[in-house]
Design a protein around this nucleic acid. Sequence first.
DNA 1: AGCCACTTCCTACGGCTCTTAGGTTAGCGC
DNA 2: GCGCTAACCTAAGAGCCGTAGGAAGTGGCT
Lengths: 182, 182
Amino acid sequence: MARVGLTKELVVLAAAEIADRDGLDALTLAALAAALGVKTPSLYAHLGGLDDLRLRLAALAAAQLGDVLAPAAAGLSRGEALREIGHVYRQWANEHPGLYAALQPASPAREPAAEQVLALVLAVLRGYGLEGDQAIHAARTVRAALHGFVTLEAQGGFGIPVDLGDSFAWMLAALDRGLASA
Amino acid sequence: MARVGLTKELVVLAAAEIADRDGLDALTLAALAAALGVKTPSLYAHLGGLDDLRLRLAALAAAQLGDVLAPAAAGLSRGEALREIGHVYRQWANEHPGLYAALQPASPAREPAAEQVLALVLAVLRGYGLEGDQAIHAARTVRAALHGFVTLEAQGGFGIPVDLGDSFAWMLAALDRGLASA
DNA sequence: AGCCACTTCCTACGGCTCTTAGGTTAGCGC
DNA sequence: GCGCTAACCTAAGAGCCGTAGGAAGTGGCT
């Protein structure tokens, strides 16, 4: 019985790879164990089970997204910052569909990263002169638009053959105008 | 063996009720059969299986959403029409979380209703002077914002204790300004 | 009325999922 | 070299979807 030498980190990374390649639904403990060259019950030495795996995946995703987003708006303001954050957000989501999907049911595991992103967005919104409740409304607006677009795109929800990148850029420009005139 | 007298319609309606009450994930053939007072395999007389049930649910959801949305913007234009459509959309989604979720993986089953909704939105956008590709970009923007907000709301994705209705109204107003200045 | 055919509904089963319980063995520290 | 930890295993159970094949209620036809 040659030991594989798994660690929690290796297991979660392998899970992320499966989720991104085959979809989050294809991430089963059986598939994960097979990918690691191990029998399914052996995973319970490293994980608390499927729910625990999903939480760890969500935490990993939140951390990664936070890391790519953090430097995106450095030195930019208003429209430029919004556009940059938007494009980085969309690109990361497109490159990591499984991880992005794992982010979905809001869980405590991703709370810290969520607050990091929120702070980042609020900083940009201050450039628009938005504070207090206004800033919260605006942050939710931006988040809803980004999340909605990326989600619909991932699910093939946009049927019409008009370039999605153009539409995304158009949306960010419209958001910029909407925020600027608040 | 008293017969229950099921029909495809009754089965799908019962499924919709379970999905809305307990969540789409809780909609299993076993749960559906139990709710109908029948054993699981009996459902196969009315359905092709779980995938088929999900498609039928998506078709039902698309039809319902189209029906409530169609008269929403009658006699209104621009900002008022957008606000009305938005509120009806959100209200329906909040009242039917299971059906709304069933709409998710874009399937051929909901195509007709999707086109109906698209035509409705495009009509409103004409009020903003948007045509051709511009109108497509704008329609995608509106859809992304609505879908994103409603989805995040359903998942408890908005943590901060600021009124969600206010945020939604703010988003619709921001969209209106963004579209008006396109 | 009586019978036939249809369709609903059933039991039984196989394969997949996650999960727990308990035993074996590899490899590190003493 | 020996023992302890933990990584890994087999075995088993509950729940899921889906298929196969049989029994029974219901409507139509003679």
